[in-house]
Design a protein around this nucleic acid. Structure first.
Length: 374
DNA sequence: GTGTGTCACAATCGCTTGTT
DNA sequence: AACAAGCGATTGTGACACAC
């Protein structure tokens, strides 16, 4: 982890161009392909950060979350975090690949009429699937994660999760157009994210004449609880049990730089919209994203070569072979990434700036997610 | 007129998922 | 394993407002 290695790139845009030339030369539009991949990297960084926060049992990826009180409309979110209703462990030995939901059928109380999903947990190509949904049962999704894998055996954790998550996490990235100094207009994207953030939780936000937010919560008897939004939210997070607050959700968004979010002292409209809609808005800095790309993909140390290899194999010009996404990841690359994120945990946390709430820190976000997970 | 910035929408690409 | 559909992210374009 040397500082000099990443400082040779002046901006994330310069790095995107480097990737376009070195990796995505096969694409009709190399810069666009590089930008698309950077979006994937933001998701990967977010996923492994959540794992180092001991949340891996709770994660579901790209699941539809219904609007509060309006289940007809669902929104796919990058990551949703759910409480664990029951946890089981399965051991596959001797190891025979692929491992499918069918092979784990007897490792958890699977109902007889249960419809098992078809995606395998790990394939013959040694690409593993993070947070594989085995089935959707009445109580919610059942999710499998590989805990230990060696040549002879594989240990898998299986978690029955609540249908309703306690938090959602979204990732967004926007690039800078060629020949322009500022990024493209992202207000529509910001509005889309904002709409989702404000429609999924039972704790609703109402703007007061003063400009402050009031929190409103309908109780089981039909009466309303109301109070300053952050006070009510704090009370729910700190409560011994969430049973009294069904449908409550913490909303988190992680955005990466694009040159249009703010000037030195002035947030632009896009960022204001996001900051007031999500409970937490984190900014992945240029330095952070650059560090990840240089240290793990472009100039990897020996123990991280598998990460770089998986990345390059994924973008060879032939479709359908990606082994470097938040869902499908090369087994060795996954091992190396987890080790890296654990070893440099505090370093990685400096990659993020907290935009909202005022005075929030990554440590307090982690603590809140930890309380909600219980 | 020229230049600059704003905004919404279209085009393109790649990933995921479901089906055969 | 191969294929198609759906979707999200990035990039590109045209219309418009406004200042000089």
């Amino acid at each position: 982890m040397t500082e000099s290695s990443s400082s040779s790139y002046k901006s994330i845009d310069a790095l995107q161009k480097t990737l376009a030339g070195q990796v995505f030369h096969y694409a009709a539009d190399p810069k666009k392909a590089a930008g698309r991949a950077l979006g994937t990297l933001v998701e990967v960084i977010t996923y492994y950060t959540l794992r180092t926060w001991d949340l891996s049992d709770h994660i579901v990826i790209e699941r539809g979350v219904p609007e509060f009180g309006n289940p007809k409309i669902v929104h796919n979110v990058e990551f949703s975090l759910h409480s664990v209703l029951a946890k089981h462990s399965a051991k596959i030995t001797p190891l025979s690949l692929p491992i499918t939901p069918k092979k784990l059928r007897h490792s958890w109380p699977c109902p007889n009429d249960c419809l098992l999903k078809s995606s395998s947990i790990i394939g013959k190509d040694l690409v593993k699937r993070n947070a594989t949904v085995l089935a959707e049962i009445d109580s919610g999704p059942v999710v499998a994660n590989i805990e230990v894998l060696d040549k002879s055996a594989c240990t898998i954790s299986i978690c029955e999760l609540t249908a309703s998550p306690f938090a959602i996490v979204e990732c967004k990235r926007v690039g800078v157009e060629e020949g322009t100094r500022r990024g493209p207009q992202t207000i529509e994207k910001a509005k889309q994210g904002s709409y989702v953030a404000r429609s999924v939780s039972s704790l609703q936000k109402v703007r007061l004449r003063s400009g402050q937010f009031q929190g409103i919560l309908e109780q089981s008897d039909g009466q309303f609880r109301s109070g300053p939004y952050h006070e009510l939210q704090r009370e729910i997070i700190d409560a011994a049990s969430r049973d009294n607050f069904p449908g409550f959700m913490l909303t988190v968004s992680i955005v990466s730089n694009h040159g249009n979010w703010f000037t030195s002292d002035n947030q632009n409209k896009e960022l204001c919209v996001l900051a007031q809609s999500y409970d937490w808005l984190l900014f992945l800095t240029d330095n952070g994203l650059t560090k990840f790309i240089v240290d793990l993909l472009l100039q990897p140390a020996d123990e991280l070569k598998s990460v770089s290899a998986a990345f390059h194999q994924s973008y060879s010009g032939q479709r359908g072979n990606n082994r470097f996404t938040k869902v499908r990841i090369d087994t060795e690359a996954d091992r190396a990434l987890r080790a890296y994120f654990t070893q440099y945990k505090s370093k990685v946390e400096t990659w993020f700036n907290v935009i909202a709430p005022d005075g929030g820190t990554l440590a307090s976000l982690r603590a809140d997610l930890g309380s909600l997970a219980k």
